[in-house]
Protein backbone atom coordinates (compact mmCIF):
# COMPACT_ATOMS: atom_id res chain seq x y z
CA UNK A 1 0.00 0.00 0.00
CA UNK A 2 1.49 3.36 -1.00
CA UNK A 3 1.27 6.34 1.29
CA UNK A 4 1.60 10.03 0.53
CA UNK A 5 4.72 11.74 1.87
CA UNK A 6 2.76 14.28 3.85
CA UNK A 7 -0.49 12.57 4.84
CA UNK A 8 -3.44 14.58 6.12
CA UNK A 9 -4.60 14.14 9.70
CA UNK A 10 -7.59 12.17 8.44
CA UNK A 11 -5.38 9.78 6.50
CA UNK A 12 -3.09 9.42 9.51
CA UNK A 13 -6.04 8.53 11.74
CA UNK A 14 -7.20 5.84 9.31
CA UNK A 15 -3.71 4.36 9.12
CA UNK A 16 -3.27 4.43 12.91
CA UNK A 17 -6.64 2.72 13.33
CA UNK A 18 -5.33 -0.08 11.12
CA UNK A 19 -2.28 -0.31 13.43
CA UNK A 20 0.26 1.39 11.18
CA UNK A 21 3.07 2.41 13.57
CA UNK A 22 4.78 4.60 10.96
CA UNK A 23 1.63 6.73 10.88
CA UNK A 24 1.76 6.99 14.67
CA UNK A 25 5.37 8.17 14.42
CA UNK A 26 4.40 10.87 11.90
CA UNK A 27 1.58 12.00 14.18
CA UNK A 28 3.96 12.26 17.16
CA UNK A 29 6.46 14.30 15.13
CA UNK A 30 3.67 16.55 13.87
CA UNK A 31 2.17 17.31 17.28
CA UNK A 32 5.21 17.03 19.55
CA UNK A 33 5.65 20.81 19.75
CA UNK A 34 2.04 21.39 20.78
CA UNK A 35 2.16 18.74 23.48
CA UNK A 36 5.62 19.91 24.63
CA UNK A 37 4.46 23.53 24.90
CA UNK A 38 1.48 22.41 26.97
CA UNK A 39 3.09 19.98 29.40
CA UNK A 40 6.33 21.95 29.81
CA UNK A 41 4.24 25.05 30.44
CA UNK A 42 2.25 23.20 33.07
CA UNK A 43 5.03 21.21 34.72
CA UNK A 44 8.21 23.08 33.83
CA UNK A 45 11.18 21.64 32.02
CA UNK A 46 11.47 18.49 34.12
CA UNK A 47 11.58 14.74 33.61
CA UNK A 48 7.90 14.45 34.53
CA UNK A 49 7.06 16.66 31.55
CA UNK A 50 8.58 14.16 29.10
CA UNK A 51 6.77 11.33 30.86
CA UNK A 52 3.41 13.13 30.64
CA UNK A 53 4.17 14.01 27.02
CA UNK A 54 4.67 10.32 26.18
CA UNK A 55 1.58 9.34 28.13
CA UNK A 56 -0.46 11.93 26.21
CA UNK A 57 0.26 10.22 22.88
CA UNK A 58 -0.28 6.73 24.31
CA UNK A 59 -3.66 7.75 25.77
CA UNK A 60 -4.56 9.25 22.41
CA UNK A 61 -3.81 5.97 20.62
CA UNK A 62 -5.72 3.96 23.22
CA UNK A 63 -8.79 6.17 22.83
CA UNK A 64 -8.49 6.65 19.08
CA UNK A 65 -11.68 4.72 18.39
CA UNK A 66 -13.59 7.06 20.70
CA UNK A 67 -12.20 10.14 18.90
CA UNK A 68 -15.14 11.44 16.89
CA UNK A 69 -13.16 14.15 15.05
CA UNK A 70 -15.46 16.87 16.36
CA UNK A 71 -12.34 18.79 17.38
CA UNK A 72 -8.93 18.79 15.74
CA UNK A 73 -6.27 16.27 16.76
CA UNK A 74 -4.24 19.15 18.23
CA UNK A 75 -7.10 20.27 20.48
CA UNK A 76 -7.85 16.69 21.51
CA UNK A 77 -4.20 16.06 22.39
CA UNK A 78 -4.06 19.37 24.27
CA UNK A 79 -7.09 18.35 26.31
CA UNK A 80 -5.42 15.04 27.24
CA UNK A 81 -2.12 16.81 28.00
CA UNK A 82 -3.80 19.40 30.23
CA UNK A 83 -5.77 16.78 32.17
CA UNK A 84 -2.71 14.57 32.68
CA UNK A 85 -0.65 17.61 33.76
CA UNK A 86 -3.34 18.70 36.23
CA UNK A 87 -3.39 15.17 37.68
CA UNK A 88 0.40 15.22 37.97
CA UNK A 89 0.29 18.61 39.72
CA UNK A 90 -2.30 17.26 42.16
CA UNK A 91 -0.09 14.25 42.82
CA UNK A 92 2.93 16.49 43.44
CA UNK A 93 0.86 18.75 45.69
CA UNK A 94 -0.29 15.76 47.77
CA UNK A 95 3.31 14.57 48.03
CA UNK A 96 4.55 18.03 49.07
CA UNK A 97 1.82 18.30 51.69
CA UNK A 98 2.68 14.88 53.07
CA UNK A 99 6.38 15.62 53.42
CA UNK A 100 6.61 19.39 53.88
CA UNK A 101 3.10 20.54 54.88
CA UNK A 102 3.39 23.52 52.55
CA UNK A 103 2.13 24.58 49.17
CA UNK A 104 4.47 26.38 46.79
CA UNK A 105 1.65 28.29 45.16
CA UNK A 106 0.74 31.91 45.57
CA UNK A 107 4.05 33.11 46.92
CA UNK A 108 4.32 36.55 45.44
CA UNK A 109 8.03 37.04 45.89
CA UNK A 110 9.50 38.67 42.86
CA UNK A 111 11.92 36.69 40.74
CA UNK A 112 15.12 38.65 40.14
CA UNK A 113 17.68 38.22 37.40
CA UNK A 114 20.92 36.74 38.69
CA UNK A 115 24.17 38.77 38.61
CA UNK A 116 25.44 37.01 35.50
CA UNK A 117 22.21 37.52 33.64
CA UNK A 118 22.89 41.02 32.39
CA UNK A 119 22.64 39.83 28.79
CA UNK A 120 19.41 37.98 29.55
CA UNK A 121 20.09 34.87 27.56
CA UNK A 122 17.13 33.15 26.06
CA UNK A 123 17.45 29.94 28.08
CA UNK A 124 17.74 31.75 31.38
CA UNK A 125 14.82 34.00 30.56
CA UNK A 126 12.66 30.97 29.77
CA UNK A 127 13.70 29.37 33.03
CA UNK A 128 12.66 32.45 35.00
CA UNK A 129 9.32 32.63 33.23
CA UNK A 130 8.66 28.93 33.87
CA UNK A 131 9.62 29.44 37.50
CA UNK A 132 7.03 32.22 37.70
CA UNK A 133 4.36 30.12 35.98
CA UNK A 134 5.22 27.30 38.41
CA UNK A 135 4.13 29.52 41.28
CA UNK A 136 0.59 29.76 39.97
CA UNK A 137 -2.19 27.50 41.16
CA UNK A 138 -2.99 24.73 38.63
CA UNK A 139 -6.31 26.27 37.55
CA UNK A 140 -4.58 29.58 36.75
CA UNK A 141 -1.61 27.85 35.20
CA UNK A 142 -3.77 25.94 32.71
CA UNK A 143 -5.37 29.18 31.51
CA UNK A 144 -2.00 30.90 31.11
CA UNK A 145 -0.54 27.94 29.25
CA UNK A 146 -3.44 27.71 26.82
CA UNK A 147 -3.86 31.46 26.32
CA UNK A 148 -0.25 32.59 26.25
CA UNK A 149 1.89 29.61 25.34
CA UNK A 150 -0.54 27.87 23.01
CA UNK A 151 -2.24 31.06 21.82
CA UNK A 152 -5.74 29.63 22.05
CA UNK A 153 -8.51 32.21 22.15
CA UNK A 154 -10.59 32.74 25.29
CA UNK A 155 -13.44 30.70 23.80
CA UNK A 156 -11.16 27.82 22.75
CA UNK A 157 -9.56 27.81 26.21
CA UNK A 158 -12.99 27.64 27.82
CA UNK A 159 -13.89 24.75 25.53
CA UNK A 160 -10.71 22.76 26.28
CA UNK A 161 -10.97 23.29 30.04
CA UNK A 162 -14.72 22.83 30.00
CA UNK A 163 -15.35 26.00 32.02
CA UNK A 164 -17.36 29.16 31.24
CA UNK A 165 -15.74 31.95 29.19
CA UNK A 166 -16.20 34.37 32.12
CA UNK A 167 -14.18 32.06 34.37
CA UNK A 168 -11.38 31.92 31.80
CA UNK A 169 -11.27 35.74 31.63
CA UNK A 170 -11.31 36.09 35.39
CA UNK A 171 -8.57 33.48 35.90
CA UNK A 172 -6.52 34.97 33.07
CA UNK A 173 -6.77 38.42 34.59
CA UNK A 174 -5.68 37.24 38.05
CA UNK A 175 -2.94 34.99 36.68
CA UNK A 176 -1.39 37.63 34.45
CA UNK A 177 -1.44 40.05 37.39
CA UNK A 178 0.47 37.54 39.51
CA UNK A 179 2.97 36.98 36.71
CA UNK A 180 3.35 40.76 36.33
CA UNK A 181 4.29 41.00 40.01
CA UNK A 182 6.60 37.98 39.93
CA UNK A 183 8.40 39.11 36.79
CA UNK A 184 8.45 42.83 37.57
CA UNK A 185 12.25 43.08 37.71
CA UNK A 186 12.41 41.88 34.11
CA UNK A 187 9.65 44.14 32.90
CA UNK A 188 11.26 47.31 34.10
CA UNK A 189 14.91 46.59 33.49
CA UNK A 190 14.82 44.89 30.14
CA UNK A 191 13.70 46.10 26.79
CA UNK A 192 11.31 43.68 25.17
CA UNK A 193 11.02 43.67 21.44
CA UNK A 194 7.45 43.30 20.31
Amino acid sequence: MSHTQNPSDKELLERIRSEDQEAFRILIDRYEFQVAATVKGMLGNRAEAEDIGQETFIRFIRSINKFREESSIGTYLTRIAINLSLNELKRQERQNRRFFSVSGYDEEEMIYPSEEMTDMEDMELKEMVHKAIGKLKPEFKSVIVLRMLREYSTNETADILDIPVGTVLSRYSRAIDKLRILLKPYLNSHEINV
Binding site: A36, V129, I133, I144, M148, L149
Partner: peptide
Protein backbone atom coordinates in the same frame (compact mmCIF):
# COMPACT_ATOMS: atom_id res chain seq x y z
CA UNK B 1 4.35 40.18 30.71
CA UNK B 2 2.34 38.72 27.85
CA UNK B 3 5.27 39.01 25.44
CA UNK B 4 7.75 37.64 27.98
CA UNK B 5 5.63 34.60 28.81
CA UNK B 6 4.65 33.88 25.19
CA UNK B 7 8.35 33.93 24.22
CA UNK B 8 9.11 31.25 26.82
CA UNK B 9 7.28 28.54 24.94
CA UNK B 10 9.14 25.20 24.84
CA UNK B 11 8.52 23.50 21.53
CA UNK B 12 10.09 20.09 21.83
CA UNK B 13 11.21 17.32 24.09
CA UNK B 14 14.68 15.79 23.92
CA UNK B 15 15.67 14.30 20.54
CA UNK B 16 14.13 10.95 19.49
CA UNK B 17 10.94 11.63 21.43
CA UNK B 18 8.82 9.69 18.89
CA UNK B 19 11.07 6.63 19.22
CA UNK B 20 10.72 6.70 22.99
CA UNK B 21 6.93 6.95 22.77
Amino acid sequence: THVLVSAAREESFKPYFAERV
